[in-house]
């Protein structure tokens, strides 16, 4: 099940997505079996997050407006990092408003041996400043990625948005500025309405959509982008089964993130991994590399 991304070999293509597994301090029996884990997003200062309600769901969607609640850089360094799992590569998700924020975080963390790499969160739809506002501009994506590149030799994944922007342009910008991979995509802009109150349901007014319903949209983006950039694509969008992972590999993803499904069952990754192995056996596939991007034309 090994997959190589740059110089790094992952034990399998499954990655626990940011914001759905905390800082990786619980469920070690799951973490040790996946390819990698991405922490909850870290910002320079602690953030208390958005007012509740923060979450809503339908049969195939989750809409959240957590708003990057996190302990901040200092407590992350003193309280979290010493406890971070060593059984699996940990990628730290970083969020910020401007270049200065990313510099403030990457200067102390950039060479830390406990961290396998970084995921730049240029796509959070739930914060007023930074987040998606950075990721929608290919110039800003380029600037932040280049800055990060100058501050660490570790792998840099850039997590992008498909909200109100041309994903092709921002993906190319990340690739050209030295990213090791792009992560496609963060949650989609979403509005839930409380009809009785004539107001948005979520405390923040809007949120980010995830869950199985977004998969066809993200599959399309993964296929399109993996054909036009020369760095790997990591898929993130509505995976609930081994079959979904197989589809993303065919579409061109090298790694596949699991997000919302972790909230339904924290052991989902173990089931999905078994399903993927079964599917490989049935399809006569020996390694993920054999099928990555092998989707044929109609």
């Amino acid at each position: 099940m090994n997959v190589k991304l740059g110089k790094t070999t992952f034990r399998n293509p499954l990655v626990l997505a940011s914001g759905t597994f905390g800082y990786g301090l619980t469920f070690p029996e799951v973490i040790e079996k996946v390819g990698a884990l991405v922490t909850k997003g870290i910002t320079v200062e602690e953030r208390i997050g958005n007012p509740p309600p923060r979450i809503w769901d339908s049969a195939e969607t989750v809409v959240n407006s957590v708003g990057l609640e996190n302990v901040g850089l200092q407590r992350f360094q003193t309280e979290i990092l010493p406890m971070i799992p060593t059984s699996t590569p940990v990628y730290v998700n970083l969020a910020g408003v401007d270049l200065g924020d990313f510099k403030s975080i990457l200067q102390p963390l950039g060479q830390d041996q406990r961290i396998a790499g970084f995921e730049l969160n240029l796509s959070c739809p739930n914060v007023k400043e930074g987040g998606a506002a950075l990721g929608q501009s290919s110039r800003k994506v380029s600037e932040v990625t280049a800055l990060a590149r100058s501050l660490t030799v570790k792998p840099i994944w850039v997590k992008l948005t498909s909200n109100f922007c041309d994903v092709r342009e921002i993906s190319k910008a990340a690739a050209d500025a030295g990213a090791d991979a792009v992560v496609l995509v963060n949650t989609l802009n979403a509005l839930v309405i409380d009809v009785e109150k004539r107001k948005p349901f979520l405390g923040a007014g809007s949120g980010g959509l995830s869950g199985p319903a977004v998969k066809p949209h993200v599959l399309y983006i993964v296929r399109e982008i993996s054909r036009i950039i020369d760095i790997p694509v990591i898929a993130s969008g509505g995976v609930v089964s081994g079959l979904d992972v197989f589809e993303y590999l065919l579409a061109g993803a090298r790694l596949v993130q699991l997000g919302s499904i972790n909230l339904v069952d924290p052991g989902a990754a173990l089931r999905i991994l078994e399903e993927l192995k079964d599917l490989f056996r049935r399809e006569g596939v020996n390694s993920p590399t054999e099928i990555i991007g092998r989707l044929e034309d109609r």
Partner: peptide, 9 residues
């Protein structure tokens, strides 16, 4: 969201 402290929902 999850009931287990993972999502802060």
């Amino acid at each position: 969201g999850c009931g287990m402290g993972l999502c802060v929902g």
